[in-house]
Design a protein around this nucleic acid. Structure first.
Lengths: 355, 355
DNA sequence: GTGAAAGCGCTAACAC
DNA sequence: GTGTTAGCGCTTTCAC
């Protein structure tokens, strides 16, 4: 009954609708696009016929002929209990409102990102948003030179025409240092992450630099995985030290480790913040819960996503005004072209100072 | 230099590559698709030229001509700290491996889902996966009759040709009831959610039914939002009761409320599980942490996603063997066509029984 | 092994 | 207001 292709996909076309409504195929197109002249009654009739047949314009075909499909590429990775889930959620919502369709590219590892960035271009998207991995200069160039936008979250875009927002991690580290020093703490330890880690490395560095300015050299306890278990292990290490040598302040480069550290200390009778202050990073929901009340930093994710969306919107508009691609508007601060957003300090009761 | 369209999008085509490589346009297509006869050297040369020019096949055009783009639609909603993030993550990974590109549709509210399901078909996807809202019978029909697959997670698909997996929530409720009764508990309360809620309603019902069989009628405390704060509020309500009338067992229809309930009881000196047992649902990461150790149920999400992916794979294969759409293989158990997966009981220390 | 030619389903001029 | 026409950038016969 309905035309069916070899692959089993039904292939009703606008022509079928046109025939059924006794009009030309072009009118069907106009009825749906709203562009071009068409009598309201005709339009209604066509819409009715189409609904009956169950036809809707083929977006692929439309995109091809206009050379401009409402597509956006998003590169992401593991979402579970990750800032990316929050970011993605907000992006999806905005795109839905703007009638942009996001195609997702999932990178299991960072090394896949470059390849995915390449695949991206086959889909002739309006642009690509990157929330994982590293953007190569050549790739960035290839994308931008096609007039697509390129926006990166929490990583450098490595290109002047691209847009990049990131949490100011070193600043967060430095803020943690100030806070703990102002609280009169003396012996500091940083709960760090794996060597390659971007965020935790910068947080650690910011902390260490700020301490160095004060002539202090905190020790760093590195953890291959920044989990709650790693935090517990650090607590054990802490407890294994002679009491007099124990740090009286801990800066954990993420909340998970901080929470694990707190949990690890519970049986010991050591008091937080009296004996040791703890500051985390990320503001997990659990950090505000009764058993933790962790002082921490919140990445201004909503602001960051808003910036990204502003960039996308600007790009969309400049596209409409037929500018030739990269308008190079210098959105970005920072010498590396990244717009750094200060993390928000959230003081709870694991640090002594109440500001 | 490179051809540029009015909209600013670069429009290099396979024809440009063909010209540069001194071959026909058809050969360029063959070089990339691997289909059709082509001399290896020619292929290499074309690939090299294309790389230099920076051209890749236009997937939209390819999809249009073959009538079969490697696209999948996924309908989702708020991802932050939600099972959907985990599910989406796994779906994305699988699709990446299968070279299927997911287009995401975001439903802010359940009522938008039907509309999104409609938009879905414009993209001529291989099928759609639904993780939010309600699937109307007509929509399901429209999708399936096009030869697309339709898979639903944690909701009925409302169509025999569609696939649906869901956690067996009533069973979970019943299991909680058994557990608590076996533990010798007498006075039960259920921390429920909003009226409309699907999952929490079934969990509550399962619990109540199982209790009813034992001649017990637990009370239900409904909460408009199933948050940690709601759980705390329930704890206050609990504490406000005369001690003799207080429940000695709480079944919370999600972990967040259970954790909040536990937190709310902390200052009171009431002991868990001695004075009151608590059982949750969802197995949040925090539920296993030191201050909580919550007995709870885990949705077998990985299994469920695997089922969905099996269905997709089956559909893909039946597509290749040119079957005409819905193969109607009766995957589904249950009279409503939903395949129910039993939740996994995770006994920790907030329930008295250690199995 | 290669090229010519015919579309895929639609949009956008342009003529009527 | 409506219909005709010419493609969009590819894939896929089918000749050669």
């Amino acid at each position: 009954m309905a035309p069916v292709k070899a692959n089993g996909i039904s292939a009703v076309t606008s022509r079928d609708v046109a025939r059924a409504a006794n009009v030309s195929q072009a009118l069907v197109s106009r009825a749906f696009s709203g562009k071009g002249r068409i009598a309201p009654e005709t339009r209604e009739r066509i819409l009715a016929v189409a609904a009956e047949i169950g036809w809707q314009p083929n977006a692929l075909a439309a995109g091809m002929v206009t050379g401009d499909a409402p597509l956006v590429a998003v590169i992401t990775t593991r979402l579970h209990f990750d800032w990316r889930a929050r970011v993605l959620s907000r992006l999806l919502k905005a795109f839905e409102e703007w009638h942009l369709k996001p195609i997702l590219f999932y990178a299991e590892n960072d090394d896949q990102v470059d390849r995915l960035l390449g695949e991206t271009i086959s889909w002739r998207t309006r642009g690509v948003i990157v929330t994982a991995g590293v953007i190569g200069r050549e790739r960035a160039d290839a994308i931008l030179s096609r007039g697509q936008f390129l926006a990166a979250l929490n990583r450098p875009a490595n290109h002047s025409g691209a847009f990049s927002v990131a949490t100011d991690n070193p600043l967060g580290g430095a803020m943690a240092a100030s806070l703990l020093v102002a609280d009169g703490r003396r012996r500091f330890v940083v709960l760090g992450g794996p060597q390659g880690g971007w965020a935790n490395g910068l947080r650690t560095q910011g902390f260490l630099d700020a301490m160095l300015e004060r002539g202090i050299a905190p020790s760093v306890w590195s953890n291959p995985v920044m989990s709650i278990e790693a935090g517990k292990a650090c607590a054990e290490r802490f407890l294994a030290m002679p009491p007099a040598e124990r740090p009286d302040a801990v800066f954990s480069t993420n909340d998970a480790m901080a929470l694990g550290f707190i949990d690890g200390l519970r049986p010991s009778g050591i008091s937080i913040p009296r004996d040791v202050a703890v500051v985390g990073f990320d503001n997990l929901p659990a950090s505000s819960w009764t058993p933790y009340q962790l002082t921490t930093f919140e990445q201004p994710l909503d602001d960051m996503v808003s910036r990204v969306l502003d960039h996308v919107e600007t790009h969309q508009q400049s596209r409409n005004t037929a500018s030739t691609g990269s308008d190079g508007s210098s959105w970005c601060a920072g010498t590396d072209g990244v717009l750094y957003c200060p993390p928000r300090l959230i003081v709870r009761s694991t640090s002594g100072v109440t500001e």
